[in-house]
Amino acid sequence: MAESEVLHAEHRLEYPYARSTGPIIGAFLTALREGRFVGATGSEGKVIVPPTEYDPLTGDDVGELVEVGPGGVIDSWAWVSHPLRKHPLQVPFAWALVRLDGADTAMLHAVAAPGPEALATGARVTAKFCPEAERVGSMADLESFVLEGGAA
């Protein structure tokens, strides 16, 4: 058999998992669908975003959910020059840890910016949500963060 007669095919193996969110993550995702953020109040009054069901220090149930953001500060970031197919943005962007206003922890998401020179640790960003009709209650409802002042 000639080499050219050997077959070749593209395959996709996929598992359609679904997860139950529980009351806390569910509330966070519900808020994202509504275009806002909530965090959980943990020990010493610290606000955890995204919220966990249990305080990471004491293991106690977290307290009230409180609204945070939509602005925040970049705690740290990494520039992605060549986005992959499953990345949230298909143009070069930054992965960043963003500490939302009112939160004591940072959450990971994409920051849209014209280039790495536009970004800095400590820079102010704000949330850019998908259009309301497209939001489904998922982390992807938050399209990205953008630099405050609209550089992106």
Partner: peptide, 12 residues
């Protein structure tokens, strides 16, 4: 929101 679709896929 009570459920989250989290499909995982492998293209090969």
């Amino acid at each position: 929101v009570t459920m989250l679709a989290t499909p995982i896929s492998l293209d090969f």
